[in-house]
């Protein structure tokens, strides 16, 4: 554990909590892509199956359970509790265009051809593209509420901090995880355009039409 990793995890948690609190308090999920949130729930589910097989640390276990619970709570709020406010007309990104290549890649490129390793790899690849339905929705409607942009900022910051963590770990422990690093860099690149808008235009984002 190093400061970049810890800051990354905190940033990830903050992002998820911002989104959940926004939906809970406003009793609305307008402008939020339910499809992205389902993909993130799938990411956590397939990655954290090792909860049942290996014990790493109390921190690791608690965080995994928290991320799983929060991601399912978010999906529940969008599709059940506040489904009347769900903007399904603008949440139209075809997720099979992400899922099919990601499933294929996780079978081709993995650390071991075992169910758990393939699912872990699948989750890493899927996470890198899971935000695309949300970004697509913002492009389609041409706007995002400021609280939604804070969510995206912390979500992007999380993987960027993990890159610093990987550099740190390589230098101090000689540890590197090629699949996670490549996917993490790809994931962060997807946020660069958004980071630029966030910084230059302020919180509320309107894309040029």
């Amino acid at each position: 554990m190093n400061i970049f990793r810890l800051a990354g995890d905190v940033s990830h948690l903050v992002a998820i909590l911002i989104l959940l609190m926004k939906i809970w308090r406003s009793k609305s999920c307008a402008g939020i892509s339910g499809r992205s949130q389902v993909l993130f729930a799938l990411v956590f589910t397939t990655r954290y199956l090792d909860l049942f097989t290996v014990y790493i640390s109390a921190y690791n276990t608690v965080m995994k359970v928290v991320f799983l619970a929060l991601s399912y709570a978010t999906v529940y709020l969008i599709y059940m509790r506040f489904r009347n406010s769900y903007d399904s007309e603008n949440d139209t990104f075809r997720v099979e265009f992400l899922l099919i290549p990601v499933i294929g890649l996780s079978f081709l490129e993995n650390y071991a051809f075992t169910p758990l390793e393939i699912l872990w790899t699948f989750s890493i690849f899927l996470e890198s593209v899971a935000i695309m339905p949300q970004l697509f929705m913002i492009t389609k409607t041409g706007e995002a509420e400021s609280i939604t942009t804070h969510y995206l900022f912390f979500l992007g910051l999380y993987r960027a901090l993990y890159i610093a963590n990987w550099v740190w770990r390589y230098h101090t422990e000689g540890f590197y995880d090629q699949i996670a690093i490549v996917s993490g860099v790809v994931q962060t690149i997807f946020y660069c355009d958004f980071f630029y808008l966030y910084v230059t235009r302020g919180e509320e984002i309107r894309t040029p039409s």
């Binding site: 990793r5 995890d9 990830h12 990655r47 090792d50 290996v54 790493i56 640390s57 690791n60 965080m63 995994k64 991320f67 650390y111 872990w120 993990y162 963590n165 000689g174 540890f175 590197y176 995880d177 090629q178 699949i179 996670a180």
Partner: peptide
């Protein structure tokens, strides 16, 4: 992965 340790990152 670089070693056989479990995936310790989140």
């Amino acid at each position: 992965k670089a070693d056989e340790a479990a995936h310790d990152e989140l």
